[in-house]
Design a binder for these strands. Sequence first.
DNA 1: GGGCCGGTGAAATTGATTCTCAAATTCAAC
DNA 2: GTTGAATTTGAGAATCAATTTCACCGGCCC
Lengths: 169, 169
Amino acid sequence: MTTRSQTPAPRARVRPPPDAATPAEARTRLNEWIAERGLKATRQRDLIVDTFFGATGHLSVDELLSKVQERDENIGAATVYRTMKILADSGLASPRHFEDGQTRYEAAIGRHHHDHLICTSCHAIIEFENERIEELQDLVARQHGFLVTRHKLELYGLCKACQARQPKR
Amino acid sequence: MTTRSQTPAPRARVRPPPDAATPAEARTRLNEWIAERGLKATRQRDLIVDTFFGATGHLSVDELLSKVQERDENIGAATVYRTMKILADSGLASPRHFEDGQTRYEAAIGRHHHDHLICTSCHAIIEFENERIEELQDLVARQHGFLVTRHKLELYGLCKACQARQPKR
DNA sequence: GGGCCGGTGAAATTGATTCTCAAATTCAAC
DNA sequence: GTTGAATTTGAGAATCAATTTCACCGGCCC
Ligand SMILES: [Mn+2]
Ligand SMILES: [Mn+2]
Ligand SMILES: [Zn+2]
Ligand SMILES: [Zn+2]
């Protein structure tokens, strides 16, 4: 359901778009992280990670569970919850809390920080980066003596397609 | 727990800070709104509204329920949930979803739109307005053909006091 | 003086997520 | 290969905010 940004170059951005991760690379990286702290590699975790990085977008645990169970119907929901938490702790996936009451995860390997435009009609999610906004956020925080560690910027509204579809008034 | 912004005038803002609502004014406004659609004014609703607008900050329903029950122990949680939903529908209060899994409400009468700095240590909430950021958000949305109806900008980190208190490294 | 209608509050339900616990699995050391 | 301590798994129970249900209440209008 995620749509990738594709504006006609609004103003040349500097940082190059890094490469997305392959499922195999993600599995390797997770297993390194797991080994470092005496945890264990398991078939279930590999399957879940493989499925997650083989998909795109902002997946809810339930959506991911469905996909995982297509490959092995015996995987339990608790295991998917646990595995996604490990992926988040290791920095390989980012949890997102949009306003539908479910935690969604997106791949974080080789990706820049970005924020989201969310269509309240078709639930499309458009990603964007804006360095100026980030700078202004830092400025505001500094003016309040605040040290920011993370932020959330979400713009809710109607995507182009849904505006056309909607009663135009 | 909310702290009001008090920077030494970072750059003269234009809009004057509007007046906050008194509990009595809020009760009146809600009862007008209620009458317009054939609903009923009740003692419970008046009490809840009075308590809510007599308090400050970003109250969870549970916190509000406690305050309300100090005045009338027989008020039920369902009634507070229902009343706050009405206040939100009527535009007199704004629901906020920070990252602690509870809906919080703040008074919206005679207040500008604003965003929040949230201390992850002491849970203080600092409010700010930044016109430049709002403009850039609109610009980003326009570049994607998106029509924004509402947004959320939250900066999480450590407030000044908590930075001092924290291991400084 | 009995319906009509929304409102109330206790209790039950929902839905996402976490917890519990017995059984299964991993893996480093024999 | 085998062992055994530690970890993981999956089903179901527990949690927790929020919503729904439902029997009862209180004005209001014939
Ligand atoms: Mn994203
Ligand atoms: Mn606020
Ligand atoms: Zn849309
Ligand atoms: Zn603090």
